Simulated scan of single mutants.
Amino acid sequence: MMITDTHTHLYSEAFDEDRDIMIQRALDLGVKRFFIPAIDSTYTQRMFELEKAYPDNVFLMMGLHPTHVKENYMEELAHVEEMLAQRKFYAVGEIGIDLYWDKTFLAQQQEAFKYQIALAKKYHLPIVIHCRESFDEIFEVLEEVKDEKLYGIFHCFTGTLEQAKRAISFNMKLGIGGVVTFKNGKIDTFLSQVPLEHIVLETDSPYLAPVPFRGKRNESAYITEVLEKLEIIYGFTKEHIVKVTTDNSKAVFGI
């Protein structure tokens, strides 16, 4: 099996003491492809170093994370644009709107989201959406910019069945990770109604560790816990789920 983690922050400081050991644990379990979202310019060099160390396994995105949209967001967007012009990336992400921590920069987040969607279309790339407490605001932007060039992944999907269907209508796959194992996660109650063809696997490590590791540091190896939960939800074998979700990721990222 070749499992794909479509969203993992392997360059995070949380892994500084054991990064290679942690990545090897995932590789040993068949997790062979890691898609790496950007946060802001301060992490770019770390991402490049990670790619250099694991050129056959690590695939980089470029973007400005919504929680890092601050006073200097135009400088950060210029960095994103400069990087996209210089070299190959596999998506523009993670981008979107986050109203959980702070609503101060909502207007700037909306502007940055639209700007980066335009960049994705320019370079014929998918987008990877971060959405927290902001489904209405995200959908409003997507409605405004939707066309045949808009596609990607709704990362860490935590919405309702209705919101899942609406996300899919914008040509988005749903990124399913540790939340599906949470007792209060709720998505496990309806996910079987979403065809597997619309699902990709992710961890969002080091965040959102699945049960039985909830509350601890997440890592890409724990995607196997997500797989076990999806096996119960869908009634398919792990092998089938891995094949379909990896094929879905290939369709999105082009590899």
Rank of each mutant, 00 (worst) to 15 (best):
N184C: 00
Y11H: 07
P55M: 10
K52V: 04
K52A: 14
E82V: 01
A209T: 06
L191S: 05
E111G: 03
L99A: 05
D5T: 04
L27E: 02
L27C: 03
V200E: 01
Y100K: 06
M61W: 05
T160H: 11
Y73G: 13
R132N: 09
G96M: 09
T189M: 03
E219I: 01
Y207L: 00
A38P: 01
K122Q: 14
G159C: 12
E231R: 12
T181Q: 08
M172P: 02
Q86L: 12
G254K: 04
E197F: 01
D188V: 11
I3N: 03
P66W: 12
T203N: 00
P210R: 11
F236C: 11
E75F: 10
A167D: 07
T6K: 05
D98K: 09
E143Q: 14
Y90A: 02
G235N: 10
E81L: 00
P66H: 09
Y151M: 03
V80F: 10
F59A: 01
M62F: 05
I95P: 13
P212F: 06
I232N: 12
A118E: 13
L60T: 06
L150W: 04
E143N: 12
D98L: 09
M2I: 15
F236H: 13
E239G: 09
H155M: 07
R166T: 15
K216T: 14
K165E: 14
K186A: 03
D102R: 05
E133Y: 14
G175S: 07
Q108V: 05
L99R: 12
L60K: 02
E144T: 11
S169M: 09
L106I: 03
S12H: 03
M47V: 00
E13C: 01
Q193E: 14
H155V: 02
R87H: 08
N248F: 09
I129V: 15
F236G: 02
A167P: 09
L60Q: 06
Y207D: 09
P212W: 08
V80P: 09
K32S: 12
S12D: 15
M2W: 08
K146Q: 15
D28R: 08
E17S: 12
D247T: 06
F213C: 03
Y123A: 00
E144M: 07
H240Y: 11
L196D: 06
F182C: 01
E76M: 13
G235A: 08
M83P: 08
H155W: 01
A53E: 10
G177W: 04
E144R: 15
M83C: 15
H130W: 06
V69I: 11
M83Y: 07
T246I: 02
R25K: 14
T245C: 01
E239R: 04
Q110H: 04
M61C: 14
A112S: 15
F59T: 02
D98I: 07
R214I: 10
A112R: 08
E137I: 06
P212Y: 09
D16R: 10
I168A: 04
R132H: 07
E144H: 15
L161H: 05
K114E: 12
V226Y: 01
D136W: 02
E140F: 06
T42F: 04
L208P: 01
K32P: 00
V92A: 05
K52C: 05
E111R: 05
K114V: 09
E197K: 14
H7N: 12
H7W: 08
R132T: 07
C156G: 02
F253S: 00
A209N: 00
E140M: 08
H240S: 02
A38I: 00
E94R: 01
Q86R: 10
G178P: 08
V252G: 02
V211E: 02
E82K: 15
D56T: 12
